[in-house]
Amino acid sequence: MSLDPATVRRIAKLARIRVSDADVDALGADLNAILGWIEQLDEVDVSGVAPLTGGSQMAMRMRPDVVTDGDLQDDVLSNAPDRAGVFYAVPKVVE
């Protein structure tokens, strides 16, 4: 399987990564190498084997329903490119 430049651009767009025209070919080559490796994995016969969803046989750890966090307005807003009072401010997004 080989990705064409249009597919590479689409993948980059879905991931919101800006890729210049000059980089498309190199990125495509990298992605194709990864896909080649995945295709190698495909050669193993896994029929009848349940997909593995975790690296161990451990079950999920859970937390009790207790409020232990929050009240961090300044901290959670500290990385925001823009804020308005206690809100994050972003370019207008409206349907």
Binding site: M62, V66, V67, F87
Partner: peptide
């Protein structure tokens, strides 16, 4: 572990997990 109730001041019930700070891990509420 941030509160899930309605009506607080904006962004007062936000943890680093909810704000998606790098490296934060989700832990499921039983």
């Amino acid at each position: 572990g941030a509160a899930a109730t309605f009506g607080a001041e904006a962004n007062a019930q936000v943890s680093f997990v909810d704000a998606a700070f790098p490296g934060m891990l989700p832990v499921l509420n039983e």
